[in-house]
Design a protein around this nucleic acid. Structure first.
Lengths: 201, 201
DNA sequence: GTCTATACAGGGATAGAC
DNA sequence: GTCTATCCCTGTATAGAC
């Protein structure tokens, strides 16, 4: 799977940028945006506090770059999983699997994206929230199509989509690397649960 | 249902205490613990910053009191819903319903409890985390009993409990008062989804 | 592009009057 | 039990050398 580090690699950002970026992900996920000092980020990156401002205009911009690139990556992975050649049930399983695995493998990043966005400027928040809604839309479309073909029996499409997303996203709340269950096992469990929720025949 | 304001009422806390407490819940849920200043809490409570320290020893103690009393209330409501006279399926439905409704009606409080606890002292965190595990235990016990009676067909009891809790707790992430769906409608949807997840016959 | 040093605003907590 | 005033530390961001 494409990783967050891989995404940063792809863009050929300077080494200092990458180190600050990754240090910030760790710090924000553990202590929250406001609970993290620029000194702490710099310290984790092994650099001076001033070095942060060479690569980012402000602490808020660091959060914005993290959220924005993480959601770009999520969308890319989800879109790839929603293979039009598959029937709705196969597509739902595939999307739930990658979404779950993403929130397990990148649980630190996901916690930042899910719970720190209120620290963004209104403009950045608007932009980032739109990307989040895109993910919801993909899931909802799959369920709607399954219902229209008669493959799914969900009475409430939006409700089933919300429940399905809850399963995937909440993984970021409780999963930690090294957990008893592997991300793949959790993904399989969630894919199965999602099929049951939508009433797949 | 028993409300948070009701719990505070029951304890006959001084008026200033209550106002600070409720102001802090609102502020912490919107801006996070570290993003909230003691001046902001006091301002929302219509009091001076110094007044906070008459009722609480520190800002951290405010968070601790909120988390502790909210979880006490959650446990009380959940325990009541887990009526031993009901069969496992009835008990699961009942517990999922109240847990979902709780996270909708008290979504602000729930967001604080779910995502701000890292700001607690280690001692307070240990105590509060134990209360959280109690809730998990109640759900897991119901599912285990349903499986042992043959009423449920879940192959993975802990996994089914985690998925069920995800449905209930994640409501606090997306639900806001005045949402299109009422807490009761969401509760019904989640109760149905939980039964499907555990494979109720 | 990285450092050291620092300006300056903001926030937790306390003193002491009423 | 509430207020005003304030202490003092911490945190974001910048200046300027290398």
């Amino acid at each position: 799977m494409l990783t967050l580090a891989g995404l940063i690699e792809r863009h050929r950002f300077p080494d200092g940028y990458r180190r600050m970026f990754l240090a910030a992900v760790g710090a924000f996920s553990e202590r929250g945006f406001h609970g993290t000092t620029t000194r702490e980020i710099a310290s984790r990156a092994g650099m001076s506090p001033a070095a942060l401002y060479v690569h980012f205009g402000s602490k808020e911009e660091v959060l914005y770059r993290i959220a924005s690139s993480a959601l770009d990556l999520t969308l890319e992975v989800v879109s790839e999983a929603a293979d039009p050649a598959l029937p709705p049930s196969g597509r739902l399983q595939s999307v739930v699997r990658v979404l779950t695995a993403w929130h397990a493998y990148h649980s630190a990043t996901a916690r930042v994206v899910l719970h720190q966005l209120d620290a963004l400027t209104p403009e950045h928040l608007t932009e980032v929230a739109a990307k989040q809604r895109e993910v919801t839309r993909v899931v909802r479309r799959i369920i709607a199509e399954g219902v229209s073909t008669g493959e799914f029996a969900a009475a409430d499409i939006a409700g089933a989509a919300t429940a399905t997303l809850s399963l995937c996203l909440d993984v970021a709340r409780w999963y930690r690397p090294g957990d008893r269950r592997t991300p793949e096992e959790i993904s399989a469990l969630n894919a199965d649960a999602a099929l049951r929720i939508v009433g797949a025949r």
